[in-house]
Structures are given as C-alpha cells and as structure tokens.
Design a protein around this nucleic acid. Structure first.
Lengths: 229, 229
DNA sequence: TGACTTAGTGTTGTTTGTACACGATACTAA
DNA sequence: TTAGTATCGTGTACAAACAACACTAAGTCA
C-alpha cells in the first residue's frame, strides 16, 4: 500500500528528551539506533507520527516502545525543521521533553527495549542528526522552567525528603542552594504535604517524607504566584 | 506531477499570529479566506510548508504573500497537531508569533493582499479551525515574554518616547504601570540610547526620542540579567 | 556512651519593589 | 503677552523579598 499527494510532503517525527537525576548527575535517556543512517549511534528516542494519532500520543507511544517508559511528565519543546537536518530526506521533528524518576525507570527493569541507557550530561556520546541541538534546547528549557514552576517533584519518587528536592535543584541548576532559604521558600508555598512518615534504613537521623499536593498547587495557580529558587 | 510515500503523511503548515499596538489596543492581523473550507472567514495567515524551505522561511514567505508584512520579529510558538483540527485531512501546523510596528504596516499601504486587516482583541470575528486556541497561546506567550525580555520595542517605530513604550506595556499587560518606576527600571538596564532628538508637532512639551541599543543588549544577555516591569 | 552523620531551625543586613506629587517645558488661544 | 493646558521628567520613604550565615537535635554505629 502507498499514499500519493499532489505536493511533496516532509516526513514528520517526534523526539523525546527524557531527563532523570541520580545522586550526583542530571541524566538523559538515549537509545542505540538499530538502523541506518547512523546505525549504532546513541540518539534521542523518537519516530514517525502516524496520521491517526496526535503529536503527544506519538511521543508517548515512541517513548514506551523504545524505552519502556510511560506515564511521565511530558511537554512540547520546539519543532526542528531545518532542510538539511536529516541526510535522507526532509524530516521535520516535533521535540518533547520529559521528566521522570530515574530510580523507578531503571534500564535493567525494562524488558522490551534492549538498548536504552542513561547518560550523564557531562559524559555524552556523539549524537546523530541535530540531536545535540535538541538536547541543548531541552536543558535550557528545563533550567528555565524549574525556576518558576514546581516541576522538581517530577524527577523524584512520590515521597521525598526536602534534602532530596534541594539536591534536584542543585543538580539541574548546577549551583549550591542555601538549605534554610530553600526550605523557607518551598514550605511557604504550601504545595507540599507532610506524609507524617520518615525515611527508613538510613545511618543517621531520618528526614520527614513529603509529597506534592496537586490540589493546593492548582488552587495556587489560579491566584497567580511566584516560584523561584 | 505527484508524490508517493510508503506511509500516509500529515500535511504540514505554518500559521503566523502577528501583533501590533495602536493608541489603545493590542491588535492582530487576520486575512479573509478565499477558499474552502471556511471560505470568507477571517483567519490567521499561514499556508503549506514546501519541502525545500525551513519552517521559519515558510512562515516569513506566507506572511509576506498574504499580508505584505516582512522583516518582522518572528518566533516559533507551538506546534498544533490534534487529529481533528482540520476537517479535510490530517494537518499539523507550526505556529509562529510576530511583532510589528502597526503604524508602519498599515493595511492600506499594501498592494498584493486585498483582504487583510487588523482586529482589536476585544473585537474578534469567529475563527476557523483551532485558530482561537492558537491565538490564545500567542497572547499568553506575548504577555509572558514581555515581562522578562525586552521585546516591547518590536511593537514601536525605530524611535520612540518612554511614554509610548510604557503605553505598549500597559496595553499588552492590560494594567497601569507607574511612570517613575517604569522609567527608573528601563533606563537602569542601559539598553536604550538617547537619540538626542525630541518629538515634533505635538501640542505640548516634546518628549525625548530613544532607540533600542542592540549592542548593549547583547552584552547584557551574556552576563545574565533580569527584565521585569 | 561517645563519635559521626544528616535533619531541622531564625535573625540580620541588603536589595528590590511599590506608592506617591509637583515643577518644568512647550504650545495654544484669547 | 499672558493665562491656560497638556505632557515631560524627576526623588523619597516604606514594605517586601532575598541572601548570608551556624548551631542544636535526633538517630546510627562501633
């Protein structure tokens, strides 16, 4: 079967830049390409958009097919459409960026994608197409967004300590954050709920566990707010 | 001549939301559709992307073809790709938003586009496709961007008074701005250069004319800055 | 039980934001 | 020529937000 049009059409793809943080690094999930061009190179996961699915659906589908990741925070980033960005033919790509709890999406836990892996930003392989540009745009967006919207939670498990959250900010923004000022500010927003529980199995005083209070956050959005670390 | 592909491809278009301000209103340029679907309705200018031009080139080309406007500030906004957004077939549209000096682009001055016009935001006609959604996204982006990036100039002639600039902010943000605080802040940034000239033909004390100092602005960008009215 | 590790907490000085009013300048019209 | 009128251009004081900074509390481990 084939499809014929009066005018030439660019191919349309989606690409997903997935971020996670571990103890020390901001990491990106890449997949190893199984086909030419650039066979064997590590690339940002993505693929062609089908005519019967929305862009976001396509992004989520490709992400799950190639990495096993699902149900993550996903947001459109930018659309890359330079004429020469793909050596084969004209391909326009709608890029998304995603945030996930790296611990919950360990590569070993997946079954279907045999060649996906997390890479620290300081230790990236060479990337095909314009994926380096896409990745840079995603990092810039993540940094910008973290400052004025509470998305740090998306990079953590459901329950987390304030120190963990602070660490996310430090890793993403790549600078130290003052502990007392951070806590003062984040608690004043009243978008965290104290779960009443504490850490387990730590070799020191256990910290309180907090969760993100989406209801309080939505209430807050309506009144206009400022969120900046 | 026709083009055949193994898999069905969405059509790809660009749409441009062009803003201008006059004495009292934020305005948008719309064109009257000459073909079905929605023939006769006012819509955001746009059209199909050719395989040999980048997205931004396509946006600029369509803008000039349909409205005569060229050389304006143009920035990618968002890509709209819902399956049902066009009744004919699957069409994905990369939306741009543009800022221009409305005075310099009066509709009467154009020759090639017979049916383009400025509409105040409070006085919009019904729009086809998802153009109302696109327009809302553009307005939100304009408001957000104006607060932390110096783009107010793009809506004014090369030389302007501080009162005119303040008026742009008031119109776009839809609230009053304090005159002394505004001047203090905007002059402290040192991105305006005093042309040494003053208004002509006004029935009161003439105001100084300023221009945007791009060199100073670029220097500033490198150091990181904060721009908020 | 003493040493170690991280949790959790307030105060102060500095910077930034916000509210606010009047004399100066240039034109207009009597 | 002069009184009237319209906009230009300027400074201060109070309030809020930000930034820097160090110690005690709680729990684990040897």
């Amino acid at each position: 079967m084939s499809f014929t049009y009066e005018f030439a059409r660019p191919a349309l793809t989606v690409d997903c830049v997935v971020f996670g943080v571990d103890e020390d690094d901001l990491k990106v999930m890449l997949i190893q390409r199984g086909t030419d061009p650039f066979k064997g190179m590590w690339a940002v996961p993505g693929g062609f958009v089908r005519v019967d699915e929305s862009l976001e659906s396509a992004a989520r589908r490709e992400l799950e097919e190639e990495t096993g990741i699902r149900g993550v925070f996903l947001e459109q980033l930018y659309t890359f459409g330079d004429v020469e960005r793909d050596p084969r033919e004209r391909v326009v790509s709608v890029a998304y960026f995603a945030l996930t709890n790296l611990i919950g999406h360990n590569v070993d836990a997946r079954t279907d994608a045999s060649n996906a892996a997390w890479f620290a930003l300081g230790d990236l392989p060479e990337l095909p197409f314009d994926h380096a540009v896409i990745l840079d745009a995603a990092i810039e967006r993540l940094r910008g967004k973290l400052r004025y919207q509470p998305i740090g939670f998306e990079l953590l498990p459901d329950r987390f300590t304030l120190t963990q959250l602070q660490r996310v900010y430090e890793i993403v923004l790549d600078r130290d954050v003052d502990k007392r000022n951070f806590r003062k500010k984040i608690l004043a927003m009243e978008i965290l709920k104290d779960t009443g529980e504490v850490e387990k199995d730590v070799a020191h005083r256990a910290a309180r566990l907090y969760g993100f209070d989406k209801r309080a956050y939505d209430r807050m959005l309506k009144q206009g707010f400022n969120f900046e670390v």
